[in-house]
């Protein structure tokens, strides 16, 4: 029933179809190759520009001395270094505890000595921000991380050093916390706010942890 109409429709379409000029096969192939080449060139230029456009740096302020927060900072730092970014970690206030070299009593003067004795003396002594229970929580977290194949904070710090992550301790907060450079683990840069700003101004990512 509908067949004649369909036939008419097909004929109509055929008659009204736009006539597209066809290129000779050799020319068509050349055009395709040229387009492909141009697209590849544009993509490569775009990939290059992503890094040459500006410095590719991540700058993180480690303010907290909680093990879980320091871990976050170290994981981010290692990840950023792995993806080819330059990384700076600035340790201030409680965060300096992560860089202490383990001496329980540090600094000069009664106040500094008392204060340093009451604060964690190194990365291995940091507590967790919740459910710490006098250090039991931190031990538990470390055990769980080990079981799950997560790198330990010590391994992450060593990895960060190997990857060339810049580790800077803030002098002002060192004074406040009663610490001097000899109380920190070796090879830590000493810097101030302008050191941070210099790197942060160059960074696409900056975090305060």
């Amino acid at each position: 029933m509908a067949a004649p109409r369909r036939k008419a429709l097909v004929a109509h379409r055929r008659a009204t179809r736009a006539k597209v000029p066809t290129l000779p096969p050799a020319l068509a192939a050349a055009v395709r190759a040229h387009v492909r080449e141009e697209v590849a060139r544009a993509l490569a230029a775009d990939r290059r520009s992503r890094v040459t456009r500006g410095a590719n740096r991540a700058t993180i302020i480690v303010f907290s001395g909680d093990l879980d927060r320091v871990m976050s900072a170290l994981i981010l730092a290692n990840g950023a270094a792995a993806v080819g970014m330059e990384v700076s970690l600035f340790f201030t206030f409680w965060g300096l505890g992560a860089l202490r070299r383990g001496t329980i009593v540090a600094g000069d003067g009664a106040l500094s000595r008392a204060f340093t004795a009451l604060t964690p003396s190194g990365l291995s002594r940091l507590g967790v921000s919740r459910l710490n229970f006098g250090g039991v929580g931190a031990k538990l977290l470390r055990t769980m991380m080990k079981q799950k194949g997560v790198a330990s904070p010590e391994e992450l710090l060593a990895l960060a050093r190997e990857s060339g992550v810049r580790l800077v301790a803030c002098t002002t907060s060192m004074d406040v916390m009663g610490l001097s450079p000899k109380d920190l683990v070796p090879d830590i840069e000493i810097g101030g706010v302008a050191t941070y700003l210099g790197d942060a101004a160059d960074s696409r990512i900056t975090l305060f942890i």
Partner: peptide
């Protein structure tokens, strides 16, 4: 295998 973030990317990057 068995390693968690960020280690897979860190090791692959190296």
């Amino acid at each position: 295998t068995g390693l968690k973030c960020p280690l897979p990317v860190v090791k692959a990057s190296r």
